[in-house]
């Protein structure tokens, strides 16, 4: 610092000499530091290195949980929308719909190749595959219900070639949708008993289903419509506890009004 006056340099030198811990404080500082050294040199260095991995694992878990939640919230919603469109389509032909409900509700063999049933699949079935499904519809009727429903849908050709057990996951979803659609149509058509039967079958065939929430909501509606208001109220309460933020919560809550009000068949998913 050539441009400093001697007095400035003296000030700096004095500052460097005096501005520091006292000898006693320095000894105390070193004693503390030496004790830390004795306890374990750099003993804590491993702890922070684990933190990023833990944070990453926690983040991945949260992400997975979030995605599952989203899937539960939105995918059924989309499916539900498709099913609403399907219901509107079915409403155009009530006679054929009733015939299908009767066939399923009574547990008899279903006419898998009937035009009504195939019309139900129009939304999800490409024309070429549907034609293939129509050709094999008679065979499907002899198989189990789930397999026959799958075959009558998009995966008819694949199911026929690979056997009943080789039902694709997408076809399972379609079969689930079809059953729920039947239950809904029965409910709308004033046949809550048939709707309950269809829902019972759904519960048997799709115990590990993806559309449990929809089934439970429909069941509450069907019970209330069938006059079993007490059971409906109990199941409604259970549903609302299990799915407090469900999109069906409002309908489930009002399905069995207080005092066992008359059935409200207009409530339809």
């Amino acid at each position: 610092m050539t441009d400093e006056s001697p007095s400035a340099r003296a000030l700096i030198a004095a500052y460097r000499a005096c501005a520091r811990p006292s000898a006693a404080a320095e000894a105390q500082l070193w004693a503390t530091l030496a004790a830390a050294e004795r306890d374990g040199p750099r003993g804590r260095e491993d702890r922070p290195s684990r933190a990023p991995w833990l944070a990453l694992a926690a983040g991945l878990l949260l992400l997975a949980a979030w995605q599952l939640d989203l899937a539960r919230m939105f995918v059924p919603g989309q499916v539900l929308q498709d099913m609403r469109h399907q219901a509107e389509y079915d409403a155009a032909g009530p006679d054929s719909q009733d015939a299908r409900i009767r066939a399923d509700g009574e547990g008899g063999p279903r006419e898998a190749g009937t035009p009504e049933l195939e019309g139900q699949k129009l939304v999800v079935t490409p024309p070429r595959e549907r034609a293939a499904g129509q050709g094999r519809g008679a065979q499907a009727g002899a198989r189990g219900r789930a397999a026959s429903r799958a075959e009558s849908g998009t995966g008819a050709a694949e199911a026929a070639e690979g056997g009943d057990e080789a039902v694709a996951e997408g076809d399972r979803m379609l079969a689930e949708m079809a059953l729920l659609q039947q239950a809904r149509a029965a409910l709308r058509g004033g046949q809550p008993g048939a709707a309950l039967a269809v829902l019972e079958r759904h519960a048997e065939e799709f115990a590990d289903c993806c559309m449990l929430e929809e089934r439970q909501a429909l069941r509450v509606q069907a019970l209330c419509a069938a006059g079993e208001a007490a059971r409906g109220a109990v199941e409604a309460a259970a549903f609302l506890r299990a799915h407090p933020r469900s999109t069906y919560a409002g309908r489930v809550a009002s399905a069995c009004p207080e005092g066992h009000a008359p059935k409200d068949r207009s409530k339809d998913l």
Binding site: L11, A14, C18, A19, S22
Partner: peptide
């Protein structure tokens, strides 16, 4: 506690 001469401490105080 005083550890340096008074002058030095005074200069250091000025610097501070």
């Amino acid at each position: 506690e005083p550890e340096a001469s008074l002058e030095l401490q005074q200069a250091a105080a000025f610097m501070q």
